[in-house]
């Protein structure tokens, strides 16, 4: 049996008998935008939905920057301006219909407060602390997620060992981890990093696993017949084949990382944009709440966009696919 395994793994052998030419489904980054607005559960459901190519094309915003005609940017800009005007009208007139705008600061007040905050070094510190936490957590999650995902995809036993943990831990929201994280880890900072890493880890590991599993058996056999060994197959076939999935996993992971980070920062910590927002509520600085929220939205969008831009060169070959 051992020499048999040298020729091909059980999985590949199964693939030999049937479904020879099954099309590898192409996952794209198109679903990713949603993750910044949705909770971790949603993002993971999206990661699963990627297996299904029939899901609708979500409109891209930043993903298409530079490729859309200018009039469409005009419409998008108009939509934002319209929302700001509506917000202004509702809040200035203290409209109270279902949603109460009486206590909501209007855009002008928020703008004044933003100008003031931009003059304080404290404000930048909150932002930088959050960015640093995201960078560390996302880095750890990316390395671990890709590494574990690849091994899971290539080893049935490892996959069977890991899968129950992933299935059980994955639905636990970041907020629910906070008490346990504080008990387990020495510092608050470590707890926040832990929670953020965990949030980003699951979509990355699952997308990587999916990408590795969908590697077509025919590519592996082609490589084998050209003299490639296990390591060469991993490097030249499995990894590049899984790259589109890995990259969309990273983009989703980035969204979930922000979500988890904010949960961690709100409950504990002394700095960070989440702490800033929550603290503003305690101090009854309603303008700062709005600013904190908008900063979170902006940074989340920007970082996801960066991940996608970084992945573009590696996926250039996909542009020629029809």
């Amino acid at each position: 049996m051992e020499s048999n395994a040298a020729a091909l793994t059980e999985r590949e052998a199964a693939g030999l008998v049937e479904a020879e030419g099954s099309e590898t489904s192409r996952t794209s980054l198109r679903e990713v935008e949603l993750s910044t607005e949705a909770g971790p559960g949603d993002a993971i459901r999206l990661a699963e939905a990627m297996e299904d190519d029939t899901i609708p094309h979500f409109d891209k915003f930043l993903g298409h920057l530079g490729t859309l005609p200018w009039d469409r940017y005009g419409v998008r800009l108009g939509a934002i301006v319209g929302a700001v005007i509506l917000w202004h009208v509702l809040s200035v007139n203290h409209v109270d219909m279902l949603i109460n705008f009486a206590n909501i600061p209007n855009p002008v007040v928020v703008g004044d407060q933003l100008v003031f905050l931009l003059g304080t070094s404290e404000f930048y510190r909150h932002i930088l602390v959050s960015l640093e936490r995201i960078a560390i957590s996302f880095g750890i999650a990316a390395v671990l997620g890709i590494f574990i995902g690849i091994i899971m995809g290539r080893s049935r036993i490892f996959s069977d060992i890991m899968m129950p943990y992933i299935e059980i831990l994955r639905p636990i929201p970041a907020v629910a981890w906070i008490p346990m994280a504080i008990l387990m880890l020495p510092t608050e900072e470590a707890s926040i990093i832990y929670i953020t890493t965990l949030g980003a880890f699951f979509p990355i590991v699952l997308s990587t696993l999916h990408g590795v599993e969908q590697t077509s058996g025919v590519y592996i056999r082609a490589a084998q017949s050209l003299g490639a060994g296990r390591i060469a197959i991993m490097r030249h076939v499995v990894l590049p084949g899984a790259l589109p999935s890995i990259m969309s996993g990273l983009a989703i992971g980035m969204g979930v990382a922000w979500f988890s980070l904010l949960a961690g920062e709100i409950i504990s910590g002394q700095y960070g944009i989440g702490y800033f927002t929550w603290n503003a509520y305690s101090l009854v600085e309603y303008e700062s709440i709005v600013i904190g929220m908008l900063i979170i939205g902006g940074l989340g969008t920007l970082s996801t966009w960066l991940v996608k831009q970084a992945s573009k060169p590696a996926l250039r070959w996909q542009e020629s696919e029809t």
Binding site: S3, A6, A7, E20, G21, E23, S216, V218, Y219, R221, A222, A223, Q224, S225, L226, G227, H236, V237, P240, G241
Partner: peptide
């Protein structure tokens, strides 16, 4: 015993990387 470079293989389709 196993695939090797003394035997070249051409598949029906979708085998180019």
């Amino acid at each position: 015993e196993q695939p090797g470079l003394d035997r070249g293989m051409v598949f029906q389709q979708h085998s180019l990387f």
